[in-house]
Amino acid sequence: MTWLEFPYFAFSAIFLWFTGVLLALVRLRGGAVILRDVLLISGTLLPLAFVLLLWDSLERPPFRTLAETRVWYTVFITVIGLVIYYRWRLVWMLIYTMVMGAVFLIINYVNPDTFDKTLMPALQSPWFIPHVIVYIIGYAFLAASSLIGIKGLYQLYRGKSPDHTLWLADNVVYIGFAFLTFGLLFGALWAKEAWGHYWSWDPKETWAFITWLVYLLYIHFRINKKSAIRTALWVLALAFAVLLICWFGINYLPSARSSVHVYST
């Protein structure tokens, strides 16, 4: 499997999600329900299959380049969308995660990676895979939480109570934040083995820490339930912007000239 076959997987997945979501929007009975589930789930299985086959042909874990992490992100965010949809019947979460997944696949189609098997020695560590996977899961939950935040703001605007939405957001943030914590700490334990110290304030580390602090603020802001709900929702919606800076923007910051962790594309 190489990136040459990627478009078949990507566009089939997008087609499956699209038809699945259409079915999810209408009231269904009997066999149509099963058809909807099959469409939605197999849409997510396709990018998963692609990345696993890619793994096999690269002979190294496909977690190194941005395009590879994007495929994982697609898989995880759509899985989370499916879980939230089946648990809480939130169609809009389903639409959001599938659109996000499709966007990531299309970015990869327009801007693919070079086919590259090499993995520098510092990345050849048993910490590598857990470190990246927990981060990607954390990001996916936090992306979902900021969308929930936007929904809450919309409810406020319409004069409806966002209490239930906030409750959901808090839960999703707790899970996402815990994964972010795992990512940060696994990174520290790995850095100790690879670079000699667990924390060196490298720009990538600094931005990962800032992201973590912003969500820490949100969690503590919410302890006092009486405090401004509107502010909490805004913090939630904007926190994701900080996360994105950490992920992409860092390559453009002057402070990141010397980072050892900036991804190659």
Binding site: W201, I210, L213, V214, L217, P254, S255
Partner: peptide, 13 residues
């Protein structure tokens, strides 16, 4: 504290 770390994120150290 976050403010100081943010400064670290923008100013080359």
């Amino acid at each position: 504290f976050t403010l100081l770390v943010l400064l670290m994120g923008f100013i080359p150290q």
